[in-house]
Design a binder for these strands. Structure first.
Lengths: 107, 107
DNA sequence: CTAGTGTGCAACCCGTCAGTTGCTCATCAC
DNA sequence: GTGATGAGCAACTGACGGGTTGCACACTAG
């Protein structure tokens, strides 16, 4: 497996929170962002965002880079493939349509 | 989007718990199972399993069928495709941005 | 140097949730 | 009928997690 089973837990856990998913989505469009930048577009404090970023970084979904006095985060979506693989495996035994979707996504 | 955004929340939430993922995995191999059957293979009570099954059913990942005095659950993995699609989108946008960046840098 | 902005750390509420126990109701076997 | 087994419901506990505030530290700008 490309992803250690241990990290799968962290990935699913990271994805469980709507705010974190939203942050991932933003980072998908935005290249990089700092905690304060993200907080500006969310109804929560910068510190809360920082905690979420820590969770995302722990799952390997995001990578921090220090630049002077600020820290820019960029999306590193590789771990998502592990989660998707798990779903495809579970669902694939039952529903072949899911297998088809997986094939399409793998292209 | 193919999946109502509302149910996506429930799906990701359902997948966040390791016990629930394990139950899904078992149901993927086992066709159907009752709450007590599942509890037998897990370190928790039947009632706890029942709660998890309720969560899974709420996410549409599992469907209960009454058979006499017992209730058999079977896996209905369709909602997984919604979650997978979301991940593919987030990760895919990232790929696109990377491509754009590369193009711009090459000029 | 001073002011301003961005991070990091710690302590602290508060809600939710996984799990438990205890009981009742429904169904099958005898 | 009686007894056993399976499901459902309700209340409770304990822990974890999201969010906050408050303050200290680091870096840039003037």
């Amino acid at each position: 497996m490309s992803a250690p089973a241990d990290s799968r837990e962290q990935v699913f856990d990271a994805l469980a929170d709507p705010t974190r998913r939203r942050m991932l989505s933003v980072l998908g469009e935005r290249e990089t962002a700092t905690a304060t930048e993200l907080a500006a577009g969310l109804p929560i404090t910068r510190q809360a965002v920082a905690k979420h970023l820590a969770a995302l970084a722990g799952a390997g979904l995001v990578e921090p880079t220090r630049e002077g006095r600020e820290v820019r985060y960029r999306l590193t979506p590789e771990p998502l493939s592990g989660a998707m693989a798990w779903m495809a495996t579970v669902g694939g035994r039952w529903d072949t349509r899911l297998g088809d979707l997986r094939k399409r996504l793998e292209e």
